[in-house]
């Protein structure tokens, strides 16, 4: 039953996304995707079984859903038309934070049963991937939000590109080290990777110019999609996987299209600030 609901949910996402690409059907497509999402959420709450056991903590779940709905609805309704891109960025960041939190809880859950087996390692790897991508997306989106409403200024300095790359390299190496060798200090290293991911999200977006923010938000959007898909692997959940990967790939293409509409390449947008800082610094 639940797998059928997930199938319907996945199909509505595909149809919704397709219809969103055409001005005549866009609004309907959005509504269809929203309906599929509601169905998938309700189905998960009431029909989810793991080893024959249903979910508990219903009070918490319902309360969280209600609080989230009220906050989301009110902020989406009251935001000014001109402030919408920054709102999208903020929502995207929350999705990223949600994915990162899931990974943190799952890590805490499995850290005592961590065994030297392939399955356990792969699971740890996926948990790391979900957390890193989610945290980068969260921190980056918050910075993008701050830039769009003028609270945060562009910051760029010499060698920034190298710093960013080294932080990213450290994140990947640490995650790989923990996943492959399973050292005893896993928890500390996990926390370190989380902290570094947040830092990377910040320094990744900081140097990029304010006008390029929509492109960056679109990119972070596809990151969050991938983070959601990691959850799909973790729970063997097809709807999270389709939804996440669909957004991941569609978001990447959309990012490239947006760059093309501005007559620039993605590389130019992302690295442009470093090269452009020298001649443009007078302004």
């Amino acid at each position: 039953m639940l797998s059928l609901i997930y199938l319907i949910g996945s199909v509505t996402f595909i149809i919704g996304l397709k219809m969103l690409g055409n001005p005549a059907t866009a609004r309907k497509g959005n509504a269809i995707a929203a309906g599929g999402m509601a169905l998938a959420i309700l189905g998960t709450i009431f029909l989810y079984r793991h080893h024959g056991q249903g979910l508990h903590n219903y009070g918490w779940i319902i309360a969280g859903l209600l609080i989230g709905s009220v906050i989301g609805f009110i902020s989406a309704r009251t935001v000014k038309m001109t402030a919408m891109p920054e709102m999208v960025s903020l929502f995207n960041g929350m999705g990223g934070a949600c994915a990162a939190l899931i990974s943190v809880v799952e890590f805490e859950h499995m850290s005592d049963t961590l065994a030297d087996t392939t399955g356990s390692r792969m699971q740890l790897g996926i948990i790391f991937a979900g957390m890193v991508i989610g945290a980068v997306s969260f921190a980056g989106s918050v910075i993008a939000w701050g830039k769009l409403n003028g609270r945060i200024r562009d910051v760029s300095f010499q060698g920034q590109h190298i710093l960013n790359m080294s932080v990213l390299a450290v994140i990947v190496l640490l995650a790989a080290y923990v996943t492959i060798l399973l050292p005893s200090s896993t928890v500390i290293l996990f926390a370190a990777v989380l902290a570094l991911s947040l830092v990377y999200g910040i320094i990744f977006v900081l140097p990029i110019g304010g006008a390029d923010m929509p492109v960056v938000i679109s990119l972070l959007n596809s990151f969050t999609g991938v983070a959601a898909a990691c959850g799909g692997f973790l729970y063997n959940n097809p709807v999270m996987l389709t939804g996440g990967i669909l957004v991941g790939s569609a978001g990447t293409i959309l990012t490239i299209l947006m760059c093309k509409a501005m007559n620039r390449s993605l590389k130019n947008v992302l690295i442009g600030a470093f090269g452009g800082a020298k001649p443009g610094s007078a302004s």
Binding site: G95, G232, M240
Partner: peptide, 16 residues
């Protein structure tokens, strides 16, 4: 719209 769709991550949160 894509941003809303990757909100499926909520399902993972509910399971957690």
């Amino acid at each position: 719209g894509a941003n809303a769709i990757h909100g499926v991550v909520i399902i993972g949160a509910i399971i957690v």
